[in-house]
Design a protein around this nucleic acid. Sequence first.
DNA 1: CGTACTTTTGAATCGCATCAAATCTGGTGG
DNA 2: CCACCAGATTTGATGCGATTCAAAAGTACG
Lengths: 211, 211
Amino acid sequence: MKKHAPSDAPWPDRPEFLAMPDSLREYAEWRQFGKEAPLFSIGECPRSIYFIVRGEARLRRHSPEGTEMVMQRARNSFLAEASLESAAYHCDGIATEAVLALAFPVADFRIALAECPNFRAKWLSHLMREVRRARAQVERQGLRNAGDRILHYIETECPSGQLLLSQTRKAWAAELGLTHEALYRALGKLGREGLLRVDGPLIEKLNRTKP
Amino acid sequence: MKKHAPSDAPWPDRPEFLAMPDSLREYAEWRQFGKEAPLFSIGECPRSIYFIVRGEARLRRHSPEGTEMVMQRARNSFLAEASLESAAYHCDGIATEAVLALAFPVADFRIALAECPNFRAKWLSHLMREVRRARAQVERQGLRNAGDRILHYIETECPSGQLLLSQTRKAWAAELGLTHEALYRALGKLGREGLLRVDGPLIEKLNRTKP
DNA sequence: CGTACTTTTGAATCGCATCAAATCTGGTGG
DNA sequence: CCACCAGATTTGATGCGATTCAAAAGTACG
């Protein structure tokens, strides 16, 4: 690990990070990104795998008409895991706030995966979780109703039924594939119907069945 | 491998299948499923990983209102790879036509992954491809326009620009997250606009830019 | 030949996107 | 501390496109 790690960096606690062999850690490089700064851009050849230590980064694409689509949000986790074997990035990687990240060279990453069984096992788990997450997102996008998407999001992302929104509602709308206006209105409607309790950034699903 | 393999079964040629160690093959079991038969159901504990040798099987879920959502189509490939470590299936696995499949016990599958580097490498590639595919599907569902989804599907699923539809259009509509009526109309419109050449089951994207 | 399903077209409806505009909020600099 | 500004939040009005319901024609299969 390069010497000049920011002193106040919290040490990542994710299993797939902890299982990483020291040999790979040696090659990691600390990098910082400002709000809206690109970690990488679509079409580029992946040289590093990023672990987002602090802040948040996203994988996103833009439709021809300009609508933004969010494919992944990474906080205290890896970003763009599937790029480990791609010849080019399929999405843009953007810091949505100030980001502190560890960059691992892909070649060293592959070697570590081949040589360290424990690390590999955790990485496999991580990938499978990512497949399930992406499929849950597909299912969510398939719901034609704005309210249903909101409820589905809370159900799949928040086991407790309580969502503490760590982003603006506008950004959340993009993640849900909605316009922000549609999100505001749907939140209001769900609140009035007693299906949701909205209190600032805290959004709680109430266990009533839809009439 | 159990003795009574159907004699006319084509031998799978997928790299992740070919790299499989013989030890794992020993434990595989041939299974057949009729049209619409369930390979497994949502909530069940995964006991087998299925490789679809002949025919097609799908991973699907139903929204509360009954709309069908297709998460994965498997032909000559594994189905529900992410269930290898789940306590329960998150989707239904359904044969959309007569299916011949190989069922591998999950425990033996995990052992083979741990012990056979070559197999493991192929499996990792396979998982990452599946992540990318799911994300492409997320992006597609994010397109609000029926025509855009059709074009996106051809672009991402058919490098040649030609799609030979191996399913009914109605089933394709479900995969695109559309009603079949919307799909028919959008196909007609794209044809009239000269963006698509539709000829029975062959659908070809023409390289004109949208006006 | 008949039945079940897909394909196709039509008309009405509904929800979301879009455009517009009025607050509200947090952060910056005077 | 306050004025100010950019962006988020919220509400309103309008239009478009997909859904829905309906029905006819085509197709596969026993």
